[in-house]
Design a protein around this nucleic acid. Structure first.
Length: 345
DNA sequence: GTTATTTGACCCTT
DNA sequence: AAGGGTCAAATAAC
C-alpha cells in the first residue's frame, strides 16, 4: 500500500514556491531604487532566500522519487509479455531499495533524549513534536532491554517527505527515550496551497513564517554570513523533540491521532541543518538536563550525546537540503514546560 | 470505506 | 552469519 506517491505534489508546489521566490526578488528589485527602509529590503532578501531553500528541498525530495517514476514508466510500454513485467518489477524494487540505502546514508542525523514523567500511564506514548509520524516497524535490539520503534513522516507518500525517526527507551532510565531523527521534513507546506493568484496573501503568509523562524533564530544567528552559507545560520535551535506515538512495549496504547500542535512553540523536530564548525553547538540548544540533542551527519551516534557539549563537532561537507520553517518555531531561550507537554499521557 | 499499527519476513550492512 | 532497518500482509482503529 505504500507504493505510489504521485508526482503531482512535487512539481506543482515546487513551481509555486519558485514563483514565490521570483516574485519576492522582483519586489526587491523594484524597491532597490527607492529609498525604502533597509530593513524591508533585507526582509525581502530573506523571504526569497527562504523560498528558494524550500524549493531546493522539495526538488531534492522529488529527485528521490525519480527512479521509481522512471521505472514505472518503463514498465508501462513492454507489457506484452506477462513475465517481463514481473521481472522488471522485481528488478525495480531491488534498485529502489539500493537507492534508498544510498539516500539514507546522506541524510542528516541527530538525536535527542526525552524524559517522560514516570506517572505517564505506564510509559511514554503520544508524545508529540508537532509532526505526524507513522510507525513502520519495531525491532528488538541486541543488548537493549527495550525494542526500538521506527517512524517515518506520514506525508512521505503525499509530499515526499523523507523525515524519519527511531525511538528507543533507555536502558538505564526507563523514563528516558532516545530519539534519533533522520532527514528533514520537506512536508512543511501548509494544507492550503500557495496560489499564485493572490500574491498578497502569499506574502502575508510568508511573512508570518519568516517572523516565526527569524524571531526564534535571530538570537543565535551569527552576523555577517554570506547568503550562500545561509544554512549555517539556521534559525533552528532545538533539535530534540518528544515522540509522537510510541511502541507498545507493554502493549501501551499508542496515541495515534496526531494532533498538530498549532499554537505551541515547542514543536520541534528540526536539527540545525548545518552547524558551523566555528559555532559551538551548545549555542544552538537550550538544554534541560535530560533533554539533549546533537547533530552529526555521517558521524556515529555512539557518543553523540556527549558531543553536544563539546564544540568541535565539525560536520563536514554534508549535503543537507535546507528547508523552511513553518509551524515549528521555537525560542531557544524558552525552556518549555515539560509537565504541560506531557501531562496528558 | 480509509488510514494506522503490528509483526514476521526479508534485505542490507558490517 | 548476525544484527539492524524496512517491507508488506494482516489486523485494528476510525
Amino acid at each position: 500500500m505504500e507504493s505510489c506517491g504521485d508526482e503531482g505534489w512535487g512539481l506543482s508546489s515546487l513551481v509555486d514556491v519558485l514563483a514565490q521566490g521570483e516574485h519576492q526578488l522582483r519586489q526587491l528589485d523594484a524597491c532597490l531604487d527607492e529609498h525604502s527602509p533597509v530593513e524591508q529590503k533585507k526582509q525581502l532578501v530573506r523571504q526569497a532566500q527562504a523560498a528558494f531553500k524550500q524549493a531546493i528541498s522539495m526538488a531534492k525530495a522529488f529527485e528521490c522519487d525519480r527512479p521509481r517514476l522512471a521505472a514505472a514508466a518503463a514498465d508501462e510500454s513492454p507489457r506484452s509479455n506477462s513475465g517481463g513485467s514481473f521481472n522488471s518489477d522485481r528488478a525495480f524494487k531491488e534498485q529502489e531499495r539500493r537507492e534508498m540505502c544510498k539516500k539514507r546514508k546522506t541524510l542528516p542525523k541527530w538525536t535527542s533524549q526525552v524524559r517522560v514523567p514516570l506517572g505517564a500511564a505506564g510509559g511514554a506514548d503520544g508524545l508529540e513534536d508537532g509532526y505526524n509520524w507513522r510507525k513502520y516497524g519495531q525491532k528488538d535490539i541486541l543488548g537493549a532491554k527495550h525494542p526500538r520503534a521506527y517512524f517515518r513522516c506520514t506525508h512521505r507518500n503525499t509530499a515526499g517527505c523523507v523525515a524519519m525517526k527511531q525511538v528507543q527507551r533507555s536502558d538505564d532510565d526507563p523514563a528516558v527515550f532516545v530519539i534519533t531523527y533522520r532527514g528533514e521534513h520537506t512536508c512543511l507546506q501548509k494544507p492550503q496551497k500557495l496560489s499564485s493568484s493572490s500574491p498578497i496573501n502569499q506574502e502575508a503568509e510568508q511573512d508570518q513564517q519568516l517572523h516565526l523562524s527569524f524571531q526564534t533564530g535571530l538570537k543565535v544567528k551569527t552576523e555577517g554570513l554570506s547568503l550562500e552559507d545561509g544554512d549555517r545560520n539556521s534559525p533552528f535551535s532545538f533539535p530534540s523533540t518528544p515522540v509522537s506515538s510510541f511502541m507498545s512495549e507493554n502493549n501501551l496504547l499508542s496515541s495515534p491521532p496526531p494532533r498538530v500542535i498549532e499554537n505551541s512553540r515547542f514543536a520541534g523536530g528540526f536539527p540545525p541543518p548545518f552547524i558551523s564548525p566555528t559555532t559551538p553547538e551548545s549555542k544552538y540548544f537550550s538544554m534541560s538536563p535530560w533533554r539533549v540533542g546533537s547533530y552529526g551527519g555521517e558521524a556515529d551516534l555512539a557518543d553523540v550525546v556527549s558531543a553536544v557539549t563539546s564544540a568541535n563537532n565539525s560536520s563536514s561537507a554534508m549535503d543537507v537540503a535546507p528547508f523552511m520553517l513553518d509551524s515549528a518555531g521555537f525560542d531557544p531561550a524558552l525552556s518549555f514546560d515539560e509537565s504541560s507537554f506531557f501531562h496528558d499521557l
